[in-house]
Nucleic acid binder design. Structure first.
Lengths: 135, 135
DNA sequence: CGTGATTGCGTAATGATATAACGTGTGCGA
DNA sequence: TCGCACACGTTATATCATTACGCAATCACG
């Protein structure tokens, strides 16, 4: 565990939280993560929140604002992490992660038009996924 | 107070909450709204949340997911209420509401490509507004 | 070396956001 | 008049997130 520049070496708690999210394959709340890691020694919410903060910073995890939940990134290491969009199925809860240049470009354009320095975007689409849409 | 089809007649609590948001001119949390309406007879969070639910339904108020707050709509009555985007200044907290057809179109296109039935979108851009950006 | 800065960790307490569950009243239409 | 839909009021509780404190390991650098 060296200088910890990014994701090259996670701490124990970070690795535990990352593991829980990867295994879940979908969004989890911080408290659900905590419950799943009780046997691994985690006891307090703060341990989970601290790990999540770092994982988000490293680009390994996304926060879903409209769900108050966290999900493992499907494209770790790629650019545009901060302009990722999500489709969230209101029926089954599945989350599809989308990296779209046209969308990112439009967001940047809107910001520029408004003389707004864009740091990060939250784009979350709610509806029904292909598997859940009525015939 | 008749059939209450939409915004044509707000109930007392709805009007109080709407008034508080309009007067604020910016985002307020549900609990802040409650505090400001104590003298008007509101006592419990649920009274505020119920009013907010209806106001959002009527298209008079937006929920800002990344802030856990609510803001009066600047374009009440217009279409595309559910595809509105927001720029939120991390410095001064100001919120700019944006209705952009190109953006809405791209979101709808992405949904269509994924066979996703899009009901609502959350688009919130974080950064620094024109007044707060460094020279 | 050694000392100060940084970072992660553990714990307890608290704060902030949101909903569940229950009962009341009122207007309206069958 | 009865039943339904809806808004309301109250209490309690659930859920999400942070503050505050202290300890230990690591690392840069004199």
């Amino acid at each position: 565990m060296q200088h910890g520049h990014a994701s090259d070496a996670l701490t124990k708690n970070q690795a535990l939280v990352m593991g829980a999210l990867s295994e879940a394959g979908g969004p989890l709340s911080a408290y659900t993560i905590l419950d799943r890691l009780r046997d691994d020694g985690l006891r307090a919410p703060l341990q989970v929140y601290r790990a999540l903060d770092k994982l988000v910073e490293f680009g390994l995890v996304h926060r879903l604002e409209s769900l108050n939940a966290f999900v493992a990134c499907r494209h770790p290491g790629c650019d545009g992490h901060q302009f990722t969009a999500f489709m969230i199925c209101d029926d089954c809860g599945s989350v599809i992660e989308i990296a779209d240049n046209a969308l990112a470009g439009r967001l940047k354009g809107l910001a520029q038009d408004a003389d707004f320095v864009l740091e990060k975007s939250t784009v979350e689409l709610r509806g029904l996924c292909a598997g859940c849409r009525p015939a």
